[in-house]
Amino acid sequence: MRVRLDHKPFVVNGSALHVKLVICLVASLIVLAIENHLEGSGQRLPFSALVEPVRQLVNGPARLFRKFSDYSTQQTDLVMENQRLREEALMLRGQQLRFEALEQENTRLRGLLDSTFKVGDQVLIAEPLSISLVPYENLIVVNKGERHGVRVGQAVIDGLGVVGQVLRVTRQTADIVMITDPSHATPVQINRTGLRTIAMGTGQTDRLDLPYLPGNADIEPGDLLVTSGLDGVFPAGYPVARIAPRKEGQPILQGGAIPIARLDHNRELLVVRTDSTPLQKAPEPLTSPPAPSTHEP
């Protein structure tokens, strides 16, 4: 009698365990399938709101610490940095003058060629949250989300070059996949020759691979790779990487390319909102060409 009483709950418990496992497996697969399906349209199941507090909780103290270390920097450091920044701003303003002239000229010439040209990308400044997701995966979480106009597929750059693109958005945050992620490919163009190819991520933040270039392609160490704009995600012409220096006794392609953007320590990122209507800048040509009417839509 006692044996049976002891034995029975064990069996019931055991079979309940199997049933629960099956429930868990089926439910997981269903959720995974739904997520996989939604991923294409850039949505997620509305679940991340639940863990948003945890993310903020982790981010908060780290931010506070950073603020404090900002606050306690020496006066002399600040003066020096100020000086440096002022010089840099001046330099950039000088370049900007030239750039604007070139841009206008470019727009005018393209107008003559009857091709459209998007100028003036609109950007949004985003700050990475101090969260480490998975170290071997090149994902960043930033503090701007759907509420601020971030959408899936938008390009993300920093002051130097391309960082990646928006992978997922929630209301307050967005996950950004970096160009060095193994699953990410960036269509690029070698600036010097115009040769187009694809730069694949390797999982290391300091290296991109160029697997589709032939061995005799015309490339040299230090060549600049810029986005070609063929994928419709990255606007054309942003710097991506430089060809790595040649190693002794190795073909040059072996070394891959080194990303220009500071992928591992960024404080500010720019989300490029190309999906919004670009600024139309079509200045009237000063000397009007003979037949401009054909160019008007």
Binding site: L21, C24, L25, A27, S28, L29, I30, V31, L32, I34, E35, N36, E39, R44, L45, F47, S48, L50, V51, V54, R55, L133, V134, L139, V141, L167, R168, D175
Partner: peptide, 16 residues
Amino acid sequence: ALTGRLLGQHALAYGV
């Protein structure tokens, strides 16, 4: 949700 995985990945793993 916390680590930006597809929903269900860790759920499945933890369940098993």
